[in-house]
C-alpha cells in the first residue's frame, strides 16, 4: 500500500494580482462544504489540465489555518519554467473548477520551540503566512526576517507588518539592506527553532551559517521544493509494466510515467518527500539529479532516481516501474 492523498473538487472564487509577478488564487469547495483543517506550512498539489497534458504542482497554503472556508495560494510567474505558473496566471479564471489534493505538511512547526525564528526570501514567504497566523492565534513567540528584491516585490510585506508590527523585519536588495544573519543567530534564546523558505542559495547560506554557529540540525527546518527543470527529451523503459516512454522537453519523468498510465505514489512532486523514489534496473548515460531526498552516495550509485525532479541524458534507461 502506498501513501497518497485524496482529491478535493474546488472552484476558483477569486484571483487577485498582488504585484507584477504574483497572483493570489482563492479556492472553495465546489460542494459548498468547508475545506479540511490544515497546519501552517502545509501545501496542496494543484492539478492543471492544459489541453492534452496534466501538470501537478505543489503550492503552500497561505491562508489562516483558523479559517478553512477557503484556501489561498500565491503563484509567482516564471517566464522560463515549464509553464505551470504561466498556466495559472494566463489560463485560470474565476469560476473555473479545479482539483487539488488534501493538504500535506512537510514543513511543520516544531511546537516545542521556545521561539520560532523565520527567514523568508521572495515567494518563500507563503508558508510563513499560514504559520504566523497559526502562531499568533496561540500566542506563540515568533519573529520573521524577510528579504525581497524591492518594496514593490515584497509580496505581503505590508500585510505582515500591519498584522505583527515589530516582529516583521524587511530587507530590500535594491536598497542594499542585508540580513545580519550571524548576529541574529547568536542572539536567540536557547530552544529557538529556525525555519527557512526561499531560493536554494539562501537556504544553503542560512543552513551553513547556522551549523557553524552551533545550531543543531534538529532545530533547523527548511522547505525547498525544487521545481522540475525542462531539459532534453529522453527515452525510458518501464520494466515492470513493460512500457516504452519518451519524456518531453517540458515534461518531468514522473509526468511521463503517469501519462503512460503508471501511477507511482507522490506527496510533494518537488524532490523532498521520497514517495516516488524509483529503482534503476540498468542505464547507459548520465543522471541529472535535482532532488533533496537521495544521499550523494545514492546519486553516485546509479541505482535510484527521483522522477519528480530528476532527468537523464544518454543511450538507455530502464526503471523498475
Amino acid at each position: 500500500m502506498s501513501a497518497g492523498t485524496s482529491k478535493i473538487d474546488v472552484t476558483v472564487t477569486d484571483i487577485v494580482p498582488v504585484n507584477e509577478l504574483v497572483k493570489r488564487f482563492h479556492f472553495r469547495r465546489t460542494d459548498g462544504a468547508i475545506l479540511p483543517t490544515f497546519s501552517g506550512g502545509a501545501h496542496v498539489v494543484v492539478e492543471m489540465r492544459d489541453d492534452d497534458r496534466t501538470r501537478l504542482n505543489p503550492y503552500s497554503l497561505m491562508s489562516s489555518p483558523l479559517d478553512t472556508t477557503d484556501y489561498t495560494i500565491s503563484v509567482r510567474r516564471d517566464d522560463v519554467g515549464r509553464g505551470g505558473s504561466l498556466f495559472m496566471h494566463n489560463r485560470v479564471k474565476p469560476g473555473q473548477r479545479m482539483v487539488i489534493s488534501n493538504p500535506v505538511n512537510l514543513f511543520s512547526l516544531d511546537l516545542r520551540a521556545r521561539k520560532h525564528l523565520m527567514i523568508a526570501g521572495g515567494i518563500g514567504i507563503t508558508p510563513f503566512m499560514a504559520q504566523t497566523s497559526q502562531l499568533a492565534g496561540e500566542g506563540g513567540n515568533f519573529e520573521l526576517h524577510y528579504t525581497c528584491r524591492s518594496e514593490a516585490l515584497g509580496t505581503y510585506a505590508d500585510v505582515l507588518q500591519a498584522r505583527y508590527g515589530r516582529r516583521i523585519h524587511l530587507y530590500h536588495d535594491d536598497r542594499d539592506e542585508k540580513l545580519p544573519l550571524e548576529k541574529l543567530l547568536s542572539s536567540q534564546p536557547l530552544g529557538t527553532h529556525l525555519y527557512i523558505c526561499g531560493p536554494a542559495g539562501m537556504i544553503d547560506w542560512v543552513r551553513r551559517t547556522a551549523s557553524e554557529a552551533g545550531w543543531p540540525s534538529e532545530t533547523v527546518h527548511y522547505e525547498h521544493f525544487a521545481a522540475p527543470q525542462p531539459g532534453k527529451p529522453f527515452d525510458v523503459t518501464l520494466a515492470v509494466s513493460g512500457k516504452q516512454i519518451r519524456v518531453g522537453e517540458q515534461q518531468s519523468l514522473l509526468e511521463a510515467i503517469e501519462a503512460a498510465g503508471v501511477d507511482p505514489p507522490y506527496l510533494c512532486r518537488g524532490g523532498v518527500c521520497g514517495q516516488c523514489e524509483t529503482n534503476v534496473v540498468s542505464y547507459d548515460g548520465k543522471f541529472l539529479h535535482n532532488d533533496h531526498w537521495l544521499s550523494e552516495e545514492e546519486h553516485r550509485s546509479g541505482c535510484k532516481i527521483m522522477p519528480c525532479v530528476s532527468r537523464f541524458e544518454g543511450k538507455s534507461l530502464v526503471l523498475e516501474r
Binding site: 501513501a3 492523498t5 479540511p36 488534501n102 500535506v104 506527496l267 514517495q275
Partner: peptide
Amino acid sequence: FLTNIQQGA
C-alpha cells in the same frame, strides 16, 4: 508507513 499517513486516510 506511519509518518506518511495523510489527513483523511
